[in-house]
Design a binder for these strands. Structure first.
Lengths: 350, 350
DNA sequence: TTGTATGCGTTATCAA
DNA sequence: TTGATAACGCATACAA
């Protein structure tokens, strides 16, 4: 291994001088500088960042803890993190908790999860990462699972009650509000909602957004149009069937994720309704399969990459100890409607 | 920050002794050991792995270079890598090249790619990773893009001509062979093939597998049943239309990926053929959308997680310098057919 | 402008 | 069984 010492000897200068030219610190004479640079190139020298980190007490490395990398949100968030990490000169130490697999094996033991996280965070502390980004599985409160730590930590796709912690999420309420507004703009007045789990934060926020839009446009709020599913295809399917058996048919259905939206389309088809001609449908999440379905699903896309971009940028500020402008901040980014083929104006019947 | 020095002072022993109890090296008296352990717990000491790495010339960290993490193969490969990394006590330093985005911006400049990789690998050298796993975008030869390096490196989801390099891939030929056999086992004799790009390694291997199966079962090889697409939905769609316009209709279609398979189903439907009753279809890749389609797509799943598991295990052997049993090895793992609803026996017409 | 010397937090050699 | 001390490769205060 080539070290600064080797360079120094070969260039007949001191180690300090080598360090000066490498870091462009100090005032080094033009000719010695040139000489040193030559030798560096000649020996193909690569600085030892481990040694540098030890000395500087800074690794320029961010620990990224992902609850489950195989879940749809993770890759794009990580992609965003990577993009800005490169710009900022930061490295990413990735830990994948593989929560879904673990939790399905062992029962959903909250203490177990806490232990796993504790172990991972201890490891990151030992590795001397400058900061931590925690990427959740779905938007929820993880306060109970997170141990105390001195390292700056930031949460995305989840949040904590801890006022000291930053988090970056998307705006569920705005998203549902705009999706509902879109239906209204197309002329729909009877808009049904297929919700996710009732204990989900997202479900509540999206319901709010829906309700806000209904009220704002002075539409009739019809409680029988509100159905609660479990995020899965089957619940979208069966709840839509229920919806289609009521006397006063809705002309549009907002499903809180794409699986349930696809289930809804299937139910419509099976009962002889066409989408979008008879019933318009909007999903949530902009999953890949929506683009391949027939009709192509109109859906609300999540700002995953932007969340990643902002996450690493913010943690970098946190590390640099810049003003509190980003400290203790709970940020929400807005979603964007992807217009495809599952929505059109309601037909003459309604 | 708490260091071994702090522990030593507090426990009234030397730094060396602390090191001994931490690493269970040396012979430490029971009572001093107990005392030291107490202080360690009391002060919540965490070893500084940066210092340790510097001293030991070993980081227990693997650099993982992913050509594009947003592509469907990456998350599961990484998941496998993570699973075994944890077991082996290795950390993962992740670099995402974001090739798809970069390459679409700048034209597909091979030198540019080489430069990017060079830069990333230099960075990993500086970070003193013990080994590198390179995860490709699709199965192809990357020899030209990879600079020389002293660090053990292993390729997965791609390969090099370099005999010194290990690679881990899946067996395309076997996969296509088994998919075709499956059609035959259901009674199909007229089996069409929608291939991917002709310049793709996968396309060739899969074609071989298909051909082998046709020959083995003494079926007529009909060249008009072979169509070459471009991996995309649209090509699956239009090529299937061509197939359905021939006089001698096939009863089954093997598409080399799920997009083209879905395109094929759509084409069948649009021309009034039912899947699987009239035409059976098998896809490739086991993409998520196949499970949500109607009918649910029968498809060949890739052993992505197992590739990741094996990759990190192998690189660990390489690092440990164990015998050459895994050195210079080109491994292929087998694929597995996911039986769903897009295949059934051919109807009476055939 | 350049060089000497010290320390970052470890491990490990050698002596006690 | 324990302790003093020299590295590991680098940055930097201070001296020259």
């Amino acid at each position: 291994m080539i070290t600064m010492k080797d360079i120094a000897e070969r260039a007949k200068v001191s180690i300090a001088t080598v360090s000066y030219v490498l870091n462009e610190s100090g005032n080094v004479g033009e000719d010695t500088k040139k000489k040193v640079l030559e030798v560096i190139k000649e020996l193909n020298y690569r600085p030892n960042l481990i040694a540098k980190s030890l000395k500087m007490k800074k690794t320029n490395t961010i620990g990224v803890i992902v609850e489950d990398i195989t879940v749809f949100n993770a890759p794009n968030i990580i992609d965003g993190i990577n993009e800005n990490a490169e710009k900022l000169g930061l490295s990413i130490l990735l830990t994948n908790m593989r929560l879904e697999k673990r939790v399905s094996n062992n029962q959903n033991d909250p203490d177990l999860v806490k232990q796993i996280i504790k172990k991972i965070m201890d490891e990151l502390v030992s590795k001397k990462v400058d900061g931590i980004i925690y990427v959740g599985l779905h938007p929820r409160d993880v306060t109970e699972s997170i141990p105390e730590t001195d390292i700056p930590i930031l949460f995305t796709y989840c949040y904590t009650k801890n006022q000291e912690h930053c988090s970056i999420n998307y705006n569920d309420e705005q998203a549902a509000y705009e999706a509902t507004n879109y239906f209204v703009s197309k002329g729909h007045k009877k808009i049904a909602l297929i919700s996710g789990h009732i204990d989900s934060m997202s479900s509540h926020s999206r319901y709010s957004g829906y309700y806000k839009s209904i009220k704002k446009h002075n539409l009739l709020f019809n409680p029988t149009y509100i159905k609660t599913g479990d995020w899965r295809f089957d619940s979208g399917y069966s709840l839509t069937k229920e919806l289609l058996e009521t006397k006063d048919l809705p002309t549009a259905i907002l499903a809180m994720n794409d699986q349930m939206a696809i289930g809804a389309i299937r139910a419509c088809n099976d009962l002889g309704y066409r989408v979008p001609d008879d019933i318009s449908i909007i999903g949530f999440d902009n999953r890949e399969f929506g683009a391949y379905y027939s009709p192509k699903l109109t859906t609300m896309s999540l700002p995953l990459r932007r969340m990643g971009l902002l996450a690493i940028e913010t943690i970098n500020h946190l590390i640099s100890g810049s003003p509190t402008d980003c400290n203790k901040l709970k940020t929400t980014l807005s979603c964007e409607l992807i217009e495809r083929d599952s929505v059109c104006p309601p037909n003459g019947l309604s």
